[in-house]
């Protein structure tokens, strides 16, 4: 019951912002509507937030607990609009977490992203997929690389023509390159990051 109330409250807040910004799904009609995007528009974004280890899976299908603490992650990304709804971009990030020894796990993903943006007046809901590499280091001397696929979704509020703020929720699916001892695995993590977008 309490969950339903929270959900209802969130819907009402969302509706309220839509209405005050010109009505649901209105774009050009509203006197305070913001200009849409067009080919050539670009954005820079900064994301900082939580890195949530989920689980590992080896290539025989067996699952293993992530065995890491909650960590931190951050990234910078650049995007360019191909149309009013589609943008492509690059993202360079970093994250850390700790194992029980305790030792530090560091990762540095570098991905190319394709994003489709659903526009709801002042709200934007980007749905994207990124693919690239993830450079990883554990302890002092274990270094390897993974192929990284990052599907994600976000919800942003456009503060003005240049700034948006919002929240990202991204799944990290890593396929580690096989090591000499054939012990490569797949790593699954979650990223939840508040984000700041600059449009230019």
């Amino acid at each position: 019951m309490k969950k339903n109330k929270i959900l209802l409250f969130a819907c009402l807040v969302f509706l309220y912002f839509c209405l005050i910004s010109g009505g649901a799904f209105a774009k050009d009609e509203s006197i305070i509507a913001l200009p849409g995007h067009a080919l050539g528009d670009q954005t820079l974004a900064l994301n900082l937030g939580l890195f949530i280890p989920l689980f590992f899976q080896d290539y025989s299908g067996q699952y293993y607990p992530a065995n890491m603490t909650l960590g931190g992650t951050g990234s910078v990304q650049w995007n360019a609009y191909l149309s009013s709804d589609i943008r492509i971009g690059l993202e360079l990030g970093g994250c850390f977490a700790f194992t029980p020894r305790p030792d530090t796990v560091l990762m540095m993903p570098f991905v190319a992203k394709l994003t489709y943006v659903f526009n709801f007046s002042r709200f934007e809901m980007p749905v994207y997929i990124g693919a690239g590499i993830n450079l990883m280091k554990y302890s002092e001397n274990i270094i390897n690389m993974a192929i990284l696929v990052k599907p994600g979704i976000g919800l942003y509020w456009r503060f003005d023509a240049n700034l948006s703020v919002g929240l990202n929720c991204v799944w990290w699916w890593n396929t580690e390159l096989p090591a000499v001892d054939n012990s490569g695995m797949m790593g699954n993590f979650m990223e939840v990051t508040p984000s700041l977008f600059y449009h230019f």
């Binding site: 065995n67 194992t99 554990y138 390897n144 993974a146 000499v180 001892d181 490569g184 695995m185």
Partner: peptide
Amino acid sequence: AEHSVFWAVANA
């Protein structure tokens, strides 16, 4: 790489 990062983490 000599060892897998994920394997080492999973078994730490």
